[in-house]
Design a protein around this nucleic acid. Structure first.
Lengths: 336, 336
DNA sequence: ACTATAAGGCGAAACGTTTCGCCCTCTATA
DNA sequence: TATAGAGGGCGAAACGTTTCGCCTTATAGT
């Protein structure tokens, strides 16, 4: 049915090996090159990737396992990675594991069976059990955003502790003492890190963080909305709020707006992730901005590096820092 | 290196054909079945999908081409589709074409070269040029959300005209006359449909829609925010607003909140897409809700159907209807 | 003029499945 | 007892590449 390199060979009068060499970027006589190209066009020849894969054991496909496909932070990163990898001929096979460890394990095994050349994972599982299989098969793994302890694997991280610490310190420096924080799920790496930064900022300033001002939710809009309402109803004197993810921030903002609470007069807010939100909310939100582009580029770069070299040297751990982008949502509070 | 069926055959003393039969669900003596299963476990055997694909010409992979991976409506659908297809052994290869026709074309060709068994597309191109290639190769195509004229292809659509008409009619019935609408890009199918419904509602009621109350933007939060601000600044007397996509709605709500405009007292609002937003905003938003689950299920079902049967009969066009979900964001306005 | 070297071309074998056509064995029926 | 048919098993060929080792020709150096 479809044309094969045999057809091209027949049509051009050249040998199989020559056609193959051409296809793989080898040197071929100018004259032959033209003949081959013409034949390819004419017969609408496309390399059969099954056959190629069978010989080379390469699928030119990268598996991606993420907790939620509906989380904007994740998809923003994936989009960029996909872009870069596609230009190098790689496709991405995406699996959403719904923040479920078992599904994450199954998805990873599924991808390995689908012969992916590499795996990009934003791990849910704490110990990275799901990565044992690909690693044992020599399939390169690059982690995003969440580190797995005791696993010598490339990772692109964001310094969440410092990010969080900087935000809270900034609030403290502006005279705030009753600072609430809305975190994601308790057992997620980044969530924990951000809470840690909150605590550290207080400690650093010689104060004690108050546990009752810490709220854990899901990384969703609803959760941000609900957490803030609960927090403010129990602590009317709250003077500042730090929200640790885009969706949570969105929810909190909606709640603040709706309750008619003036920002920053009545409450100062620092949000998370430099996306639509900060550009849109008035007064402009002060936010912790994660370097999405940089994260994606590093992940893609490291993955491509691993795909080329088989000699596996030391894992590359990139720790990117966030930026505190000043808006007008934090008020200087004079301490009386 | 890795075990092959030859190894399984050797280990069990059975023939190649028998192992293959077992792997593909054929009948095998109970005794042999156990032996094979043990050997598979022991050798950690996994079918080599390259070899299988070479013989069967099936990759068990579906290509997905979408305009934006950061659009929640799209990703919500994809998540569900992925879930269903994965259970049937299919993986999805995702390409984001950034609402660009040329990229869409390239992405589709890329997917065909990657030997996908089917393609799911939310088309950007009006005439569906990008689909010619897969169709000519007999690769099933299922369209989502946007129809392509003059192409006999399965599609799962939403009746956007009626949806929009219903929303606007509802507003008119509640006494509103100065009704603004914020649409997506002018040349996108759904955007056009929604604008059409707006116009039809007025015509049906014997009135004329006012062009100056129609705004076109991007399907983004910023755009919704900007469009609303512009609209309200030019039409202070606006009494109601219909926003035609999730991100746009989000932007508009933030703007309304920020301007201190009371909803629904000063402005009645109908939003789009039943996600976080409607659940969170107070007073509860009245919205047009698209049947995301149903869309995804239908797409997956049709795709699976096409993958099984080779006889291609008439294209299946599903037209799902939206629901108007009542909240408290629309005020009954007495006509004086 | 002769040789060394480089550039390019070539076919055969191999990658690991599936499937076709054929085989054997066992049971049921005449 | 003879025979048909079902159930299960088997090896060889084929799918379309890549790559190894070898061959031919052209060029450069002496």
């Amino acid at each position: 049915m479809a044309a094969t390199i045999k057809d091209i060979a027949k049509k051009t009068g050249l040998g199989l090996a020559t056609i193959s060499k051409y296809l793989n970027g080898g040197n071929v006589l100018e004259e032959n090159r033209l003949a081959i190209e013409e034949a390819i066009k004419e017969l609408d020849f496309r390399v059969n990737e099954f056959a190629r894969g069978l010989k080379t054991s390469k699928s030119k496909t990268i598996g991606v396992v993420i907790p939620e496909l509906s989380n904007l932070f994740f998809t923003s990163i994936i989009t960029i990675i996909e872009d870069i990898l596609r230009q190098k001929g790689y496709g991405i096979l995406v699996c959403d594991c719904r923040t479920d460890e078992k599904l994450e394990y199954e998805a990873t095994e599924f991808l390995v069976n689908k012969m992916v050349d590499g795996i990009i994972s934003m791990p849910v599982s704490k110990d990275g059990t799901h990565l044992k299989l690909p690693l044992s098969k020599g399939i390169p793994v690059v982690l995003i955003d969440r580190k797995v302890e005791g696993l010598n694997v490339d990772a692109v991280l964001v310094d969440n502790v410092s990010a969080s610490e900087a935000a809270v310190e900034y609030l403290i420096d502006h005279g705030h003492r009753e600072i609430g924080i809305i975190c994601g799920p308790k057992d997620i790496f980044t969530s924990h890190q951000r809470q840690l930064g909150y605590t550290q900022a207080f400690v650093k300033k010689g104060m004690f963080p108050r546990q009752e001002l810490i709220r854990y939710g899901e990384y969703t809009v609803e959760s941000g909305y609900a957490c803030f309402k609960e927090l403010i109803s129990q602590h009317k004197s709250l003077s500042a709020l730090f929200v640790t993810n885009y969706e949570l921030t969105l929810g909190a903002i909606i709640a603040i707006n709706e309750l008619g609470i003036k920002m920053p007069e009545q409450i100062s807010v620092i949000g998370f992730d430099n996306m639509h939100l900060a550009k849109v909310v008035k007064p402009r939100l002060t936010i912790i901005s994660q370097p999405i582009q940089e994260i994606a580029e590093n992940v893609a770069r490291i993955m491509l590096k691993r795909l080329l070299q088989e000699r596996v040297d030391e894992a590359e751990i990139i720790n990117l820092s966030t930026k505190l982008i000043l808006g007008e949502s934090v008020l200087e509070k004079s301490l009386e």
